[in-house]
Design a protein around this nucleic acid. Structure first.
Lengths: 266, 266
DNA sequence: AATCGTTAAATGGTTAGACCTTTAAGTACG
DNA sequence: CGTACTTAAAGGTCTAACCATTTAACGATT
């Protein structure tokens, strides 16, 4: 191969601090921090990159895998390894939080509470900053909810999209990411609840209240409306959960590589 | 070796969905979800576990590495691989968020805003639920701040501990984890700001206001006090940043394996 | 007998090379 | 011009070693 301008890949010195693979991770991280690697970029082939960094291929792969696990890199067999390209809103992998929830026995109440806190914050910010387009999207989703009162699955689609639109309107991608992270974990729960929900109409109404508060640029009202909506949703879920008694069991089995379970995108 | 009761490790069938290593990850995740693996547990040696799962050692290592990257497992050479034991509050690795921040160019303003939202939520909950012990700890840290007005570094230690105590008092470990995640990233920034802060006294006062609101079980006051405190801190940082003009440069080089930069524990 | 130093086994970390599977691009054929 | 086949490239997996570190057992010394 021709020797490219690969000065950006510095050979790893043996005077490293930790293990070799950790050093590889640091190298790649620094390249991302510095901007040498940008979203969508493709990394050199593993065999070449391993030589450039002065490590073996398995060691390089170990580093790549670590970064892939946190959602920064993505490898596709036959194609190459790429820096993750964020089409829509940046998304943090929710599986770490999911694992931690299992590990420490987080209660659903905590999850709901965290989601409520995040959604309230996001709604308040959205009320301050939402653009006309964003408000139009919200109105559209609310309309979609009212149009899907007899189709719970479709209703949930509009529900999710509404919340994501509000999050986007907040203008804070970090809060949006965190909210999605928590919401994704609760999604499995929600889909069960909404399936026999008899009061989709009330839910749609509450969403409309949120929308109206945002449209009126009233942060406090938006926060309260959102809070009321989620409190109601939580109560509905709790009633459902109690009804199903201890049947419960496996709420997981959502084991698709990364933890981005449901289609939360467009 | 004797064949233990290792029925919990099911051999991976070739009728797997994705790649082999992904299947290994799913296996381990399920074992954690099911509770077969608990915090502090040690996994079988790689060579044995690879045989039990019916995969090669590199493949098994790939799976382990993925879970280690998200903070669920921890390998120590010579000792073994363990399920992470949470001493204090469960902690999410902040490096994913840090990388995403670099990747998408998150502004510090967004970071501050996210932190403010989380801290406000946490303060409000703490006002509702803080126990006597927790309030005593808060008071202690506030006292420590007033006692360290001439020692910025020591002041920051009390500052961090105060916020963590409040988070713990919120009773919501998810919000606490998310807050720590964001706060960790901002820590490097904070240490620079506080070092020449001339108004540590004012900062201490504001912390005391937060404490008093929590002591009085006044969530709204606690939220406002916390908000005011963080707004002030952000303004101080912005002034500092503007003063330092474009000097900025590398705010990274925090490359210790995991991204838990500062000592936030004790 | 108790303690400390040495040694050996266990365990994760790394390397090497080969082969397989998938992807994507190039090329020939219709 | 477009489709289908071929082929090179790239990641995924495997085997088989060897290295580095940690732990624990063992024995010599006090």
């Amino acid at each position: 191969m021709t020797d490219l301008n690969n000065d950006i890949f510095k050979t790893i010195d043996p005077d490293r601090r930790g293990t070799t693979s950790e050093e590889v991770i640091s190298q790649l991280r620094e390249m991302i921090h510095r901007g040498d690697l940008r979203p969508g970029d493709r990394l050199p082939p593993e065999r070449d990159l391993a030589k450039l960094l002065g490590v073996s291929r398995p060691t390089l792969r170990a580093g790549i895998r670590s970064l892939a696990a946190v959602g920064v890199l993505q490898s596709r067999q036959g194609a190459g390894t790429f820096v993750v390209k964020a089409d829509g809103p940046p998304s943090l992998d929710s599986s770490p939080l999911r694992l931690m929830a299992s590990l420490h026995g987080f209660t659903s109440a905590e999850m709901f509470e965290a989601r409520q806190a995040l959604e309230m914050a996001v709604a308040g910010l959205a009320a301050e900053r939402a653009t006309g387009d964003q408000m139009a999207s919200m109105a559209e989703e609310v309309t979609g909810m009212f149009a899907s009162l007899n189709d719970p699955e479709q209703f949930l689609v509009h529900d999710v999209r509404f919340h994501q639109t509000v999050a986007a309107a907040s203008g804070n991608r970090i809060l949006t990411s965190l909210m999605n992270m928590v919401a994704t974990i609760l999604f499995d729960t929600r889909i069960k609840t909404v399936k026999r929900a008899t009061d989709l109409k009330e839910s749609a109404e509450m969403h409309r209240h949120v929308y109206r508060a945002i449209r009126e640029h009233d942060p406090e009202a938006a926060r309260h409306a959102m809070s009321a909506h989620l409190s109601k949703a939580q109560r509905a879920w709790e009633a459902e959960a109690q009804e199903t008694s201890e049947a419960g069991g496996d709420d997981s089995n959502n084991s698709d590589g990364n933890g981005n379970g449901a289609g939360l995108a467009p």
